[in-house]
Design a protein around this nucleic acid. Structure first.
Lengths: 226, 226
DNA sequence: TCAATACTTCATTCTATATTTAACTATGGT
DNA sequence: ACCATAGTTAAATATAGAATGAAGTATTGA
């Protein structure tokens, strides 16, 4: 019991392995070489560390030819890493859009059931910018114009409100250190975008692929450059 | 960003410090000496480790005479430790009461908004035993007799169901490795017991004090020996 | 078939940091 | 005033386990 806990803690608590976990947090799968570059260590050392994480079932691999793709083996692992990320002092919530200062958006991912990552954050910024949602003492609310916008987008706000869970709340994105949209409305947004084939889920990770159509629509609707 | 994450990870990821965190998970505050005994190391070494955890703001202290009481400095820290505990393979949910095999119940604590720890688990066992709640494919449900019981206890089930959150679910207690009652009904139960002065919250931790009245009532209603 | 790439294995070296030894301060009880 | 208890600090030592170096296997592509 206790020793198993300590084992898990010491596994994650090595600088190199912690960096691996941090890298994998965005939900994509990485190859061993990619990871060794990202984490700035030798391939041999990476191999050693990945072996340990693998054996402890914190990571899993998928072999594709001569490549091996590593990712978190289950959501519990992601929870740990996110909980640790959450220990870092939070930045202030900012309703001012900073999309224009962004480097090209590289990836996005789901935060379990809503859109996170760079896209998720940029989308939240845009909705705030357009006053579709408004910030009110650290919570989000839908404006009157916003209600129209959501219904035009094909989302029934009343349905989302009926769900047995929180309707709308800001969710901090650990890698971006910025807020995105969670709650049932977040799920509805994600599902709508999947439905319209703007984005697609990947087989075994939390990463999201943006389709050609999605790229155009994201730019048009949210001024997000993919 | 990344380096801060690594710092937090390596701080928790030392065997001795991980054991400290594990010990503190029950919500009580411990003195440095108690911790050094619990973790099986020297007082000097404990002092060194506590210093590091303190400086990183993972723990905080309260001085009382010549004693220093250490505890998690915020709930985010507890989340990390619990998330790590959650990596350990789960035991099967068991509806059979094991209260009689228990060592004397030493403490209890809140799991944020419901009752956890030994008491929380024993209480869940008793409710299952009395068929007030019944287990159904890894979820909990309230039986027809149970509905009566709750209303007799002064809890309005309809009110609990109306809450914008899950009504009733089993929540795994990390230190006990057993299930207790979460969801809005769990909160209602906790609040009722606070209201009736069976239990009291402590100032700065998740630990719960059981009053004399509570001791009697817990025995009478749930056959729980405090 | 050969060379390049992706990754692994193992024996060796190295180093960060945990622990120990020893000497110290502060508080409380009698 | 005394001694025991609680906790700290600093220098010396020990050691786990991370990184390195050298040599391997497996897969792809040309």
């Amino acid at each position: 019991m206790e020793d198993q806990f300590i084992k898990a803690a010491t596994l994650i608590g090595d600088a190199t392995r912690a960096a691996i976990m941090w890298t994998l947090l965005d939900g994509r799968a990485f190859t061993a070489t990619e990871l060794s570059i990202a984490v700035n260590t030798s391939p041999q050392n990476m191999s050693m560390h990945l072996g340990k994480l693998l054996e402890a079932n914190l990571l899993c691999v998928e072999k594709q030819g001569r490549h091996k793709y590593y990712r978190f083996s289950n959501k519990e692992v992601a929870y740990v890493v996110e909980a640790m990320a959450n220990l870092i002092p939070k930045p202030e919530i900012s309703s001012k859009s900073k999309i224009e200062n962004y480097p090209p958006i590289k990836y996005c991912r789901t935060c379990y059931d809503h859109l996170a990552g760079k896209i998720g954050v940029a989308l939240a910024d845009s909705l705030l910018e357009q006053k579709i949602i408004i910030e009110k003492s650290n919570t989000f609310e839908i404006s009157t114009e916003g209600e129209k916008w959501f219904s035009d987008f094909g989302i029934n706000i009343e349905d989302a409100k009926k769900q047995k869970r929180i309707f709308l709340k800001p969710c901090l994105d650990w890698s971006e250190r910025r807020y995105h949209i969670a709650g049932s409305i977040g799920t509805f947004l994600l599902n709508k975008m999947l439905e319209q084939d703007w984005i697609r889920r990947t087989a075994n990770s939390r990463a999201i692929i943006i389709t050609g159509k999605g790229e155009k629509e994201l730019l048009k609707n949210f001024n997000v450059v993919v």
